[in-house]
């Protein structure tokens, strides 16, 4: 599929986002260079989803800039950003419910490859779907799939865009363990193709094993950034997690 790309570079420069009086992001700066798997964690309300929405263009930052491969993208519309090679999934799956699985796959495919024939596109889509074990559902309506399958469909759909950078928002949340395995493999395979990934997850176990670099957001600020082992022992991180959210705390402990 897409060539291995070492030149990829995403720069987030002092991004601030206000919602009314609430400051969701307080000047976040982050650079992702080359193909990396960056884990993004933080307690609820830390601004993770806001940040992904800003990167993918669904929200405009109040101030600050985002550059992707030497181009400023924070002023672009989401569909332009998607065409530049940043793909994302949503926390709550958002398949096109009344379209078939195959049609779900073709829509972004046509966007990216307007001149490719339908047959070729379908072949490409089938390859991806086969890998994600949803090829047998290709004529099924997406709305009829189970939650986990819809998640797989979202991941599959994303690859039709041939993105260079993929943002996965909670891919493991509420997914059957067996499908979790599939998503795991998916992430690994996508990594092998040289794409960069930003992974947001509450599942500490997977995020610590998968990511090469871990960024911790808290109250709209980056409080730690580095290899997972370092971040794990960062006192500020432990501080941020302690007593905030039972479940997350539990997750963090288990990961230790």
């Amino acid at each position: 599929m897409s060539r291995a790309n070492g030149t990829l570079k995403l720069e987030i420069r002092k991004v601030v986002k206000n919602f009314g009086g609430l400051q969701a992001l307080k000047g976040v700066s982050l650079t992702i260079e080359g193909s990396q798997l960056v884990g993004l964690i933080g307690p609820n309300g830390a601004g993770k989803t806001t940040l992904t929405n800003i990167i993918s263009g669904l929200l405009r930052p109040t101030s600050g800039q985002i550059w992707f491969n030497g181009e400023r993208i924070d002023t672009l519309r989401p569909y332009h950003i998607a065409r530049k090679g940043i793909g994302r999934t949503f926390q709550v799956t958002r398949a096109f419910r009344r379209m078939t699985v195959l049609e779900n796959m073709l829509a972004p495919g046509i966007v990216k490859h307007p001149y490719m024939s339908r047959r070729e596109l379908e072949k490409k889509a089938l390859e991806i779907m086969e890998f994600l074990t949803i090829d047998h559902l290709r004529y099924e309506r997406a709305g009829n799939l189970s939650g986990g399958q819809q998640k797989l469909l979202e991941l599959a759909r994303l690859l039709m865009l041939d993105p260079q950078l993929i943002i996965l928002d909670e891919p493991f949340a509420g997914v059957h363990p067996k499908l979790q395995r599939t998503i795991y493999d998916y992430i690994k395979r996508v990594r092998e193709q040289g794409k960069a990934i930003i992974l947001i997850s509450h599942d500490m176990e997977s995020i610590f094993t998968l990511s090469e670099r871990l960024v911790v957001l808290n109250f709209g600020e980056i409080i730690a950034d580095g290899p997972p082992e370092e971040v794990k022992n960062d006192p500020a991180v432990i501080e941020a997690y302690l007593g905030r959210d039972e479940e997350e705390e539990h997750d963090l402990r288990r990961a230790y």
Binding site: S56, G57, L58, R77, P78, Y79, A82, R83, G87, R88, F90, R94, A95, F96, R97, R98, M99, E103, N104, L106, A107, P108, I110, V111, K112, P114, R157, L158, M160, L161
Partner: peptide
């Protein structure tokens, strides 16, 4: 393809935009 886009946009505007439509 336009029919595909029509329906994608109708189903979920944001998701369609995030996929480049």
């Amino acid at each position: 393809r336009f029919g595909l886009f029509f329906r994608a946009v109708r189903e979920d505007e944001e998701a369609a935009a995030a996929l480049g439509v």
